[in-house]
Design a protein around this nucleic acid. Sequence first.
DNA 1: CTTGAAGATGAATGTCGGTTCCGTTTCTGC
DNA 2: GCAGAAACGGAACCGACATTCATCTTCAAG
Lengths: 197, 197
Amino acid sequence: MNASLQTVSTPADRPLRADARRNRERILAAAQVEFARSGGDAQMDAIAAGAGVGVGTVYRHFPTKDALVAQLIRARFEQFVATAHAALEVEDPWEAFAGFMRANAQHCAQDVGTQFMFLQAGPELAPTLARETGLLDLSQQLIDRGQRAGVLRADFAADDIGMIMCGVASAMHHGSAHWDWQRHLGFVLDGLRARPA
Amino acid sequence: MNASLQTVSTPADRPLRADARRNRERILAAAQVEFARSGGDAQMDAIAAGAGVGVGTVYRHFPTKDALVAQLIRARFEQFVATAHAALEVEDPWEAFAGFMRANAQHCAQDVGTQFMFLQAGPELAPTLARETGLLDLSQQLIDRGQRAGVLRADFAADDIGMIMCGVASAMHHGSAHWDWQRHLGFVLDGLRARPA
DNA sequence: CTTGAAGATGAATGTCGGTTCCGTTTCTGC
DNA sequence: GCAGAAACGGAACCGACATTCATCTTCAAG
């Protein structure tokens, strides 16, 4: 499985029939639940069952499993975008940036499907989505603020965010007794803070 | 697949026949190559072919694919142990620690199989092996030195190392154009350095 | 050199899980 | 209401792999 970026035909090609729209939502919800439960390898049958729907219906909405995953990921990125907007409202430039990172990590922690995304999805999916959804720009703004204020190290770049989130996600994915992703993120954030000198 | 810790019957149960020992080595080598090439999902047939051997032979040496993977991982941990010993010889406490981390990451970078291990193997495998091989103790010594010298943050623990390596490995695993695991590790190491105040 | 045990072989087996297909059911515009 | 399009259902299909097994080969002790 290699979740490439299949543009799911969500665009209002034709206004979906009422029941179809309902099912579509159910499927996405069930997929999220199922991915969370199984830790990344949910089965189409299970997703269909969870949505109270036949497999065929799942395939009517998403031509392939990858397409379904891609849609989940896209939705998550839209959440990231919202978080970024919120962060830009925060006064303190460091807290704005750090809070953004923490909030995103928190979202990942609550949805194993997203961790799955960072760990298993095609390498280009995350960067591409970040660009397409505008997340990259927003992140850049947060970074610029931090760097202008001298609280964020100057050599940090927007592209690094994905890499770091990926690393943090992998820590939470394992959930080994001693592994605490919040510690991990804390270490990294401390590393990103500008050094006094 | 869930590489639990199957103690492969390497122990000199009975001195393997000469050709058998040779094949065993070939299989391990081929497995490493094959995992590296395929990015973590090597097939038994491919491994057998790479070793110039029939599949049955692979199964004669390793009862299951997991057992084979476990053996590869165990070997890698022995390499880590060697690195740790070398690091303990280094004068500067910070360089000893940081060099240890960098060297291990480097080893991972050269062998996708190891990245696979950190990312896919059962959550308990790494911690368990770290204990069994003595790596945990050695790491602790490196950490103690750093903390006594005041160059390593006081709240860092040996258990954190696996988590961090896991994160770094996940970054290199994707190898997205903009993702550079050395940057990632650099950020983290900066975060681990004791703050002046 | 013989011989039997250890080892090797690879086609065949079994399972798992994504995807397809077509008969049936449910909407919705008229 | 009705017709026809849209959607649904889920058994069946199919490829991909890990694993097995009956048979053949090679080593090494005596």
